[in-house]
Computed example of a mutant assay.
Amino acid sequence: MGPLHGVKIVEFAALGPAPMGAMILADLGAEVVRIERKPPPNAKPGFEIFDPKLDILNRSRRVVRLDLKKAEGLDAARRLVAGADILIEGFRPGVMERLGLGPDESLAANPRLVYGRMTGWGQYGPLSQSAGHDINYLSLSGALHAIGEAGGKPVVPLNLVADCGGGAMLLVVGVLAALTEARSSGHGQVVDAAMTDGSALLMSMMYTLKAMGQWSQARGTNLLDGGAPFYDTYRCADGKYISIGPIEPQFYALFLHKAGIDDPDFSQQWERSRWPELKTRLATHLQTRSRDAWCALLEGSDACVAPVLDMDEAPEHPHNRARGTFIEVGGVVQPAPAPRFSRSIPAQPRPPVVDGAGEDVLADWGFTPAEIDGLRTAGAL
């Protein structure tokens, strides 16, 4: 079920964008086996304090728990990789090589393998061996500098841009592109997915506007960064917010009409010198009604208005409910798989696996009962 049905993927457990990329591939029907390593005895709490039963990013996987420090566990991991179409790892450059699971060894055993590598800085470059997180990778792309209110500091856009968009999404694009090529050429390859590269790529439209002289380096002064009065969020009478985005003249005119704004000053939509003043006046006008009252008047029209929903409200919105944008899996409300397919419809996601060593997975991937017993006896499973 799903367009990737029949594709076999081995994922080496990591943090953030690599698991999200593997989740997307599993959502689309791939069989993803996640190899989880035995944690060190004195591991300090970190992301590990999260409850694994609630980790949405680990849904729809099968899990094998191997001790890769034991020769038997390492050999088992190599056998799984030899039977896979795609490998995904998210460690610093050189870690997989030191384990004996690097691209050279893996591609020698499986020449058609697509070897997906997810890092922040990339496999090479001056920063490639440095630690970092989404906010750091985002900083190098020019994106973080561009996000924020006029006169204010750069604002962190959660970890959506580098981890999720520039990381996980570009990893998925890369490994699927390489898989398509491998099926015609018979040869696999390494996919070097770096969050710095991906974040920069997501800034393509902004760099286009800058090249055209339509983008200022000053935050909060541009069309798409909250500088325009007709593309921003506004506080309503009840303290909740709406977003408005009627950029096109006909949509802007409809917004003004339906919002009851007949002041001729607002007809100067593209007079940038008036934007700060018009934003202030529009903010005052929109504070005269509650968020839901404005939405009752404007939402669903070409005025381009929507409520700013919190994470409890979003799953209950009628549009999201009609499309099944959110689902419940194992008692946890979470985003549904996307995008949608007309024919090869993916199965309902499964909760994360938290118990068991993965003997069933090994059996399905060709290990005999004696070999599985040997792994357990050796303490490698």
Rank of each mutant, 00 (worst) to 15 (best):
S290W: 06
Q334N: 13
V333L: 04
R323M: 07
D310V: 01
C304N: 05
D312P: 09
E316Y: 10
P369Y: 03
M311N: 08
E371Q: 01
P351V: 02
W365M: 01
F341H: 05
N320W: 09
F367G: 01
L362I: 07
G356K: 01
H319E: 07
T288D: 12
P318E: 02
A303V: 01
E328F: 14
A347D: 15
V332I: 12
A338Q: 11
I327G: 04
R291K: 13
W365A: 02
T377A: 08
V333A: 11
L375Q: 05
F341D: 08
R321E: 13
A357W: 14
S342R: 09
A306Y: 07
G330M: 14
L297I: 11
G358E: 05
P307R: 02
R291C: 15
D310H: 00
V354R: 06
W294R: 07
L297Q: 11
W294V: 00
G356L: 03
V361D: 04
T368S: 13
H319P: 03
R289T: 14
T288S: 15
G300K: 06
L362A: 00
V361M: 05
H319W: 03
E359L: 02
V332W: 08
E316G: 12
A314R: 07
H319D: 07
G374N: 06
P351L: 04
P352A: 07
A357C: 11
E371G: 00
L297N: 08
C304F: 06
R350V: 03
V361C: 00
D312E: 14
H317W: 09
D312F: 12
L309R: 09
I345N: 06
V354W: 05
Q334A: 10
T377K: 12
A303Y: 00
A303S: 04
G374F: 00
L309N: 06
R376V: 07
V354F: 03
D312H: 11
V332M: 09
T368Q: 03
E328H: 14
F341V: 08
N320Y: 15
R340W: 09
R289V: 13
P318F: 05
E328Q: 15
P337F: 12
W365D: 05
P346K: 02
P349H: 08
F367L: 01
R376L: 01
A303P: 03
G331F: 14
A293D: 15
G324K: 04
E371P: 00
V332T: 14
G358N: 01
E316D: 14
C295G: 00
G331D: 13
I327P: 12
P349N: 11
P339E: 06
E316T: 15
R343D: 13
F326R: 10
D364M: 04
L362Y: 07
P369C: 07
D302P: 11
H317K: 13
V333K: 02
P315Y: 05
V353A: 04
G324A: 02
P315S: 08
T325Y: 08
L298F: 00
D373E: 15
D310S: 01
V333C: 14
H317I: 02
C304V: 07
A293N: 11
A293W: 12
A303F: 04
Q348V: 12
S301V: 00
P315K: 09
R291L: 12
A363F: 13
A293I: 13
R376C: 04
S344V: 12
R350I: 02
R291A: 09
A314S: 06
V305G: 04
N320C: 11
E371D: 01
V305T: 00
S344K: 09
P346S: 00
P349L: 05
P318T: 02
G366V: 01
V329C: 14
D364H: 12
A303H: 04
